[in-house]
């Protein structure tokens, strides 16, 4: 079933195509095979002890945020870099690329179309990584609970570390969310990325249930 769906909706850039090499020979390129890994993710080993506690402290004090405006909630992120809220004090910094960020703020509402991009981005981030659901829409759908095009519960699709309730939550609530996330990391509970990997099939099933045009590779790292 999934194979059919994948074939049916394959994006043009992912189709098998013929490419001429510099020496004139023709090579067949299958982007899904050649450009993306087919290997399933593996959980990393969670260590314990004073060294790991120290590393957890460093991870908590240096949160690099991927600003991803998925819905109206993202308007609450820019005030964090203004003099009034100034998140840099707490070691929270914005990064422009998923490869370098640890915290993924997903601000509701989250439409199905955006969920695809969110999954691709989440999977590109190096572990340990943390997800913050911002706004009621990520918890239970909020005011979009019966919309045909938004998801209701984010933790069916990605493991979420911290939820920030509200519609809209104020920037102070976001700062409180960062403080809570720091607490969790320092206690050694910031390994939800492993949870995603261990329950990979369940998450993929849920994702593919809502995303009808799955025209991307199954794994995106």
């Amino acid at each position: 079933m999934e194979e059919e769906r994948k074939d049916k909706f394959l994006a043009p850039e992912n189709e098998i195509r013929q490419v001429a090499a510099p020496d004139g020979s023709i090579i067949e390129v299958d982007p899904l095979e050649d450009y993306f890994t087919q290997e399933r993710p593996k959980p990393y080993k969670v260590r314990k002890g004073p060294v790991e506690n120290f590393l957890n402290w460093a991870r908590a004090e240096s949160l690099w945020v991927l600003g991803f405006g998925t819905g109206c909630g993202s308007i609450e992120i820019p005030p964090l870099v203004t003099p009034r809220y100034d998140m840099f004090r707490f070691g929270v910094q914005m990064r422009a690329t998923p490869r370098q960020s640890n915290v993924f703020i997903i601000s509701g509402y989250l439409s199905v179309k955006t969920l695809k991009r969110v999954i691709r981005t989440y999977e590109q981030m190096p572990s340990p990584k943390y997800v913050m659901g911002l706004g009621s829409c990520t918890i239970n759908g909020g005011m979009y609970f019966d919309s045909y095009n938004t998801i209701n519960r984010l933790d069916h699709y990605l493991p979420v570390d911290v939820y920030i309730a509200g519609c809209m939550p104020r920037p102070e609530a976001l700062l409180a969310g960062f403080a809570k996330l720091k607490e969790l990391i320092k206690e050694g509970k910031g390994h939800k990325a492993n949870e995603y990997v261990e329950n990979f099939d369940w998450y993929k099933d849920n994702q593919k249930k809502v995303i009808n045009d799955w025209n991307m590779p199954d794994y995106n790292w």
Partner: peptide, 17 residues
């Protein structure tokens, strides 16, 4: 810009992270 800014030891923490 009227902010406080990063802690003075932030680059070292970033390295460890």
């Amino acid at each position: 810009a009227g902010r406080v800014g990063v802690p003075i030891y932030q680059p070292w923490i970033d390295m460890i992270k």
